[in-house]
Design a protein around this nucleic acid. Structure first.
Lengths: 190, 190
DNA sequence: AGCTATGTAGACCGATCCGTACCCAACGGC
DNA sequence: GCCGTTGGGTACGGATCGGTCTACATAGCT
């Protein structure tokens, strides 16, 4: 009970300020976008004073960067490490997780911030590169003749499905999965 | 000379105000983004007074919508109508035009505006649907067994290349073209 | 009990935002 | 030559932005 909110009237919301800020960021940045979410509103939502917020994150840019970094542990949660799947199945499983991330926050951030030099944009690039690398590794284990190419191709499919889902408001991951199956079958010698 | 800017000192920049506003929008929205481009700056760039701007476009949202509509004639300029290409070649040609549109303005607008009900967002959806339809028609002419599927797949590849090019700052259209070739070959019986 | 760290609440700052209003200059049609 | 339309220039309003600051309350540690 030391770090959680106190009971009925204690009014003290506890030491979890940083956590509340980040989870409010997730919700608001996803629902309203980064630029359209003000710090005032964010602090109100997180039940945190602005002072506290700026003690944890020197600037809004820092908060955005940290907000993106937050997704790191969730990177394709466990998809690449599931021992119950063959490498080929793992590649396909990467197209079945969009429910958790309705739209790729990295693409959104890169577009909204609109500055390739922004730390968050750089992190978005790093993340995308990391995903491609994981896909390439798995493709190699699956016996693809050209794992780098297959990894890059699958990464493109994921981004395409993500972007298209966002713009059209229709789940495009099934289409991407269909393409992926074709590519994988073509790339892995029987 | 009636509608162009006058000579040396006339100071009168002519009646092309609306045109100048739209072309300044293209430049600024592309380089700085929609949200980060203020009307003051835009008017300055277009050499137009704010009054004039708001006589032509009641609100910034209207301007953004009209800015997107501007791309309509350029929709895959001539790709689908080139008589010198076979339908199959036309499908592949759709992946060779990104030089003119470094990053899809529709995706950018949908992400930046972040409101599916925004007229510009709706127009972005219409545009994407139109592109898919053109691809489907061409796929049908090319003899694809399932033209709808192939059209949707190719549309996803285009969006994927566009998004990925934006985030990674690397031209991803060659990768998309490679995938497209595989899909087309698989979908069209020899 | 007392100290410090951490928190809340909210006023406040300058900048920027979209949009409006006012006044005047230059053209076009009569 | 006169007048209406179109336009430039610009000051202004209200809102919101990111960020700072003061004043006060509570938690844990000793």
């Amino acid at each position: 009970m030391t770090e959680l909110e106190k009971g009925p009237l204690g009014q003290r919301r506890g030491r979890g300020a940083r956590e509340r800020i980040l989870s409010a960021s997730q919700r608001l940045f996803r629902d309203k976008g980064i630029n359209r979410t003000g710090m005032d509103q964010l602090c109100a939502e997180a039940q945190v004073s602005k002072r506290t917020a700026y003690q944890h994150f020197a600037t809004k840019d820092d908060l955005v960067t940290e907000y993106l970094r937050r997704f790191d542990p969730d990177v394709m949660p466990g998809v690449f490490d599931r021992p119950d799947l063959t490498p080929r199945e793992r590649l396909l499983a990467a197209f079945e997780i969009p429910a958790t991330t309705p739209l790729c926050p990295y693409i959104a951030a890169a577009v909204e911030l609109h500055d390739p030099a922004h730390p968050a944009s750089q992190y978005a690039r790093d993340y995308k590169t990391a995903i491609a690398k994981r896909l390439t590794e798995t493709a190699r284990k699956a016996g693809a003749t050209n794992p780098e190419q297959l990894g890059e191709q699958l990464a493109l499919l994921i981004d395409g499905a993500s972007a298209r889902t966002r713009v059209l408001d229709t789940d495009s991951f099934p289409t991407a999965a269909t393409i992926a199956a074709v590519l994988i079958d073509n790339a892995i010698p029987s």
